[in-house]
Nucleic acid binder design. Structure first.
Lengths: 99, 99
DNA sequence: AGGCTACTTGCGCGTTTGCGCAAGCAGTGA
DNA sequence: TCACTGCTTGCGCAAACGCGCAAGTAGCCT
């Protein structure tokens, strides 16, 4: 986990930066923690993060635009899930640096 | 690398978010790539990233505020270095998700 | 159809960000 | 002391962000 080359083109870096930006908000990190336990509805996530539903919906749109989450509809309820478990590894690593 | 709990307080998440934000710019990621090879001067980093020196100085200030880099002065020249190699692991992980 | 729940989208506001440019420091050397 | 290099800081601006609120949309139920 430490030998890779890490030489990127500018557009590579742009996409990495976009993912890092999606991770750069506490409420969105809270969402990732919850989704680590499986899919959750918007209202669940909104309650857990302590914000209003429209606000959460926008945060989820950011994560969706970054390709980190996907949705499934079941009746009226929209469930969000992680698309790539590696984002949890990245978050854990960042949290360990922040710790 | 996948079993940790990942349950944080809001202030934990705030600090993690601050680190992610420091990683959320292509020029700053370029800096990390260069610093992976050892310490570099501001003008070197500025040339590699293709930006003006004041601009680079501000990007470095962001990384410094996040605790990701440190400085050493040698004559007129200020050398920047990584304070924690784990940030490279985090970057690699993010790049692999972006890939 | 109407009403209901669950979610998304649009708008307006204050704050933050990244940039270019000019000015202000260190530190070296003449 | 003076000039010079290397870096930092201040300022102003356009763009993006996070938020609250209102309005719109999608699907279930009667």
């Amino acid at each position: 986990m430490s030998g890779a080359t890490l030489t990127s083109s500018d557009s590579d870096r742009q996409r990495s930066a976009a993912i890092a930006r999606a991770l750069s908000d506490p409420k969105r990190l809270c969402v990732l923690e919850r989704l680590a336990g499986g899919e959750r509805s918007v209202s669940d996530l909104s309650r857990d993060a302590g914000c209003q539903i429209p606000n959460m919906s926008q945060h989820l749109a950011v994560l969706r635009a970054a390709g980190l989450v996907a949705t499934r509809r079941e009746g009226n309820t929209v469930f969000y899930r992680l698309t790539d478990q590696r984002v949890l590894d990245a978050y854990r690593l960042i949290a360990s640096i922040a710790g």
